[in-house]
Simulated assay, not measured.
Amino acid sequence: MKKLLLIFAILCSGFSFAQGIILSQENAAEKGITPIWPKCDRSRQTPAQCFDNKLRNHIIANFEYPDIALAEGLEGTVTVEFIVDKKGKIEVLEVTGAHRYLQREAIRIIRAIPKMEPGKWGNKPIAIAYTVPITFIKP
């Protein structure tokens, strides 16, 4: 709950245009609210399962170990906090962990997530916050 309030406070103070409700992934899942990844509306999986699978596959398919990080022997886990806003676009909120070269790659991967149908509370689109760890292990 504290994380949700912190995210909400940051968005309201820093981005006056981002007004509205923001749910954490956990709260959204409890309420059965999730953004719809492209083509997940035709899936046999629940929207939340499809979202999770598509996100995992997206990270794997777009993952590129930065050359400079390989040369310097950098490894670690980068945690990216982002929202799928009420227009279905991705906004990165915070990136922590590992080296900045690895953080940049994690941001690139998350920003490459396709636009999707936003989560809805009733008929009103809402933003949903997610936290994703991306682990970099030298090949």
Rank of each mutant, 00 (worst) to 15 (best):
I10T: 10
L11M: 14
L11S: 06
S13P: 00
F17K: 13
Q19D: 12
I21H: 10
I21N: 09
I22G: 01
Q25D: 12
E26I: 15
A28K: 04
A29S: 15
A29E: 13
E30H: 11
K31Q: 14
K31T: 01
G32P: 07
P35H: 09
I36F: 02
P38E: 09
K39V: 12
R42A: 13
S43G: 12
S43V: 11
A48E: 15
C50W: 09
D52P: 01
D52N: 13
L55Y: 08
N57L: 14
H58S: 03
I59A: 01
F63H: 04
E64I: 15
Y65C: 02
P66E: 01
I68K: 12
L70I: 14
A71C: 03
A71F: 12
E72V: 03
E72D: 11
L74P: 06
T77V: 04
T79S: 06
T79K: 08
E81Y: 06
F82T: 01
I83Q: 04
K86A: 08
I90W: 02
E91Q: 14
A98N: 00
R100S: 05
R100N: 01
Q103G: 05
E105L: 00
R108Q: 02
R108W: 02
R111A: 00
I113C: 06
P114V: 11
G119H: 01
G119C: 07
K120V: 13
N123P: 00
K124I: 09
P125N: 12
I126P: 03
A127I: 03
A129F: 06
A129I: 02
Y130L: 09
T131A: 09
T135S: 12
T135E: 11
T135F: 09
I137F: 07
I137N: 11
K138S: 08
P139M: 05
P139W: 03
